[in-house]
Simulated assay, not measured.
Amino acid sequence: MNILFDFYHNLGWPLSLLVIATFVLAGTVKGVIGLGLPTVAMGLLGLAMAPSQAAALLIIPSTVTNLWQLAFGGHLRGLLQRLWPMLLAIFIGTGVGTLWIDMAESHWVVRGLGGALLLYALSGLCLPTLRVGSRTETWLGPICGIITGIITSATGVFVIPAVPYLQALGLSNDELVQAQGVSFTVSTLALAAGLLWRGSLGGGELGASLLALIPAVLGMWLGQWLRQRISAVLFRRVFFIGLGALGGHLLISG
């Protein structure tokens, strides 16, 4: 039982409270707009701890909530048949990035995290609706997967360019939500494998990540409740503006 709490004991109460508040907020964002849990978690926790620590904490909350997301919709088999080249490329890109980049030791990783968050925010606010044709999809999907994997291994953020790419495929809303769940699940498992290989994901980190699942799930329930009562479009805009400000701060301060 102590292994579940040792990580937080070493962090101290202020940082432990930050972790709890961060995962409640991240889960709420995911509950409202269907994505954002690892992005918010990495951004906020990156202010106070090493990106490798933050990435280790999000493994179980991200995996469970993404499996929850991809389990519903009825399109899983068709999406896997269509997206498997991109998904395989995400795993390969993350592996290559893990061999090349050490998230725990590189000071510029924090700036890379800030850059990834800022780029994602700008794409969400400014990028027009794009469309990818079937011929383009055959080669663009794997390229986006490789780039997403490398960014994942460096920053723990796995939305660029995977999310804009999926949004450009012309999927229905249900298909898009489920496709994002599949992509995020593969990215999370690939990130976990990389952290394990680097020695940044042990029993203490997994125990701490398991406990972080509780505020994340509470946040998702809160987000789903809020989704029925607020404008998802307005919430999404505010989310991207806040994420952009956070990314800019990390990019400048490092």
Rank of each mutant, 00 (worst) to 15 (best):
M42N: 09
R198M: 10
Q81F: 08
A162R: 05
I59D: 00
V110G: 03
A208Q: 03
V64P: 08
G74I: 05
N10K: 09
L45G: 08
G170T: 09
H75N: 13
G73T: 06
N2K: 12
A54Y: 12
L88W: 03
V238M: 15
I33H: 12
P14R: 12
G202I: 00
Q53H: 13
Y165W: 11
G97N: 05
E175L: 02
L15Y: 04
S134Y: 12
P51H: 14
V96H: 05
L11T: 08
R135K: 14
I151Q: 02
L67H: 07
G36T: 01
L189E: 05
P161R: 06
T98R: 01
Y120C: 05
I241A: 10
L171R: 01
W68L: 06
S106P: 01
Y8Q: 09
A50I: 07
L251H: 01
N173T: 08
T148D: 01
R131T: 13
R229Q: 13
A193K: 02
T136F: 14
I90F: 01
G181M: 06
A89W: 00
H107R: 12
L169W: 08
A41F: 07
N66L: 01
T65Y: 06
L45V: 06
G170D: 07
G133N: 13
I147K: 02
Q178K: 05
N66I: 00
C144E: 04
M220C: 08
P61F: 09
R82H: 12
S231M: 01
N10S: 12
L206Q: 04
N66W: 02
L119W: 03
L99K: 06
L47D: 08
A41T: 05
P51A: 14
T138R: 15
S209L: 07
M220K: 07
S153L: 05
Q228R: 15
L44I: 15
H107V: 11
A190V: 00
A21N: 08
V29E: 06
A116Q: 05
M220R: 07
S16C: 04
I143V: 15
I160W: 05
T22C: 13
L4P: 02
A208C: 06
R227V: 09
W68I: 00
L195C: 02
S172A: 13
I241N: 11
T39P: 07
G27I: 05
S231W: 14
L70V: 01
G114H: 12
L196Y: 14
W100N: 06
F240M: 13
M103V: 04
L125D: 07
R229I: 01
G223C: 01
W100S: 08
V238N: 13
G204F: 00
G12Q: 04
V157R: 03
S183D: 03
I150W: 12
L222E: 03
P51Q: 15
A232T: 13
L83H: 03
T22R: 09
G74L: 10
L35C: 10
W197K: 07
P164M: 09
W108R: 11
S183Y: 03
L171A: 00
G254K: 02
T188Y: 03
E137A: 10
S16Q: 06
L251M: 12
C144N: 10
G34T: 04
G112D: 00
